[in-house]
Design a protein around this nucleic acid. Sequence first.
RNA 1: GGGGGUGUAGCUCAGUUGGUUAGAGCGCUGGCCUGUCACGCCAGAGGCCGCGGGUUCGAGUCCCGUCACUCCCGCCA
Length: 459
Amino acid sequence: MRSRIASSIRNYLDDNGFLDIETPILTRATPEGARDYLVPSRTHPGQFFALPQSPQLFKQLLMVSGLDRYYQIAKCFRDEDLRADRQPEFTQIDIETSFLDEDQIMDISETMIRGAFKEHLDVDLPEFPRMTHKEAIYRYGIDRPDLRISMQLVDIADLMKEVEFKVFNAPANDPASRVVVLKVDGGSELSRKQIDEYTDFVGIYGAKGLAWVKVNDIDAGIEGLQSPILKFMPDDVVASVLERAEAKSGDILFFGADKAGIVNEAIGALRVKLGEDLDMLECEWAPLWVVDFPMFEQDEKDGSLTSVHHPFTAPSCTPEELEAAPAAALSRAYDMVLNGTELGGGSIRINKPEMQQAVFRVLGIEAEEAEEKFGFLLNGLRYGCPPHGGIAFGLDRLVMMMTGSQSIRDVIAFPKTQSASCLLTDAPGTVNNKQLRELNIRLREQPKAESAESDGGSE
RNA sequence: GGGGGUGUAGCUCAGUUGGUUAGAGCGCUGGCCUGUCACGCCAGAGGCCGCGGGUUCGAGUCCCGUCACUCCCGCCA
């Protein structure tokens, strides 16, 4: 299946004038935020190659050079911990084009994915709706909503400003916080034990608790409700909440009140978990595009800004507007999401040096540092660079979803374990002192006794 | 770095309150049958119960430690 999907994607891109161009594996750090895998250089003592986290810089240089339709099924490397849908060595369908805007790139991509589903699963995916990042967070608490589940987060902070219940009124009066209600159809069947389990579940995202109201009989007013928190709220507030949540008999309402980030993650995850546990998936495939991402996100600790996508993503405003209000700036980035999984994402890139420098300034990257790290790209922009943009899809994730696999490792021929080792080859392994000497490397800590024995004779 | 789950035959798993020779299905070996083709019947081989320690008359089962795999949080788009 993986082989056939890759093949049909190649055919599609070949037929549409894309050139398959390989890019180096031994290279420099690329601008994604993950840890790099490093490879020591023998010919340059003390220096290291980095394995690419993506071919990002190379594909942009191809656009500078005038090759206006590039693709590659490329290996990418990010030295971070694994998940069911993540391993440190993975494969991207990497695409870049010149002279196309975001709508055209999304069209090409959508056609490609829809074609793959039709050809291999005989599934006709619906037209992909578009949702802004803001709306996704607001309604689903996450930037990759699973639209198979229709439940949504409903804000009620305005109703809770005056209630004498600190858990609710404090966040309700704090602009950085959020108070939401999640109505679960038929959820009043849940037992106390199950509710406790969901309370524990939201706890792993930092939520301090999970308030709830069972709606036993909507027509019986307060008497028809069952909840530990009713005593803290005036009847008219309760009535307003029920109305806004469109509650009916047999439902349960869950509440989240905390810092916005915690509420979004906790109740957003709860939404999906309830949807799965209670069998509330309304369709098999729910794709969408998420657009209008913010340019930057703020570090919670030191307040510094980092790119939401990567620092070459074009904003949808001028350099002046960007520098005046960076936190409010939106980017020309787009993510394809299927069933709550990000399948791919991309953006229109910056093609003017002034804009690129403005972004670096906002990110706190000195001109000198920018020149040292990305000088070859900046030079390209100075020589004149066509407007361009692209997208990259996680091939492993795509195949995983199309085959109904639970783990990315089920669709990778020689997968790494969760600790990023290979059981088959026993990699990574120790190397002997001769190799280390050639590379000008001395280990800070000697290997454990048994592996040290193998020094000098592991061939 | 933190929390949870799992580890029993080649594979997938069961093993009740601690109790005799640790079981099933599939696979494998041998035999029988056969118009078979995901055959059927009979017999058989195959298990340091992840590893180390402890409690106990007695541990697959309880306790402590350790290792591996896995899911999640952190991290990572």
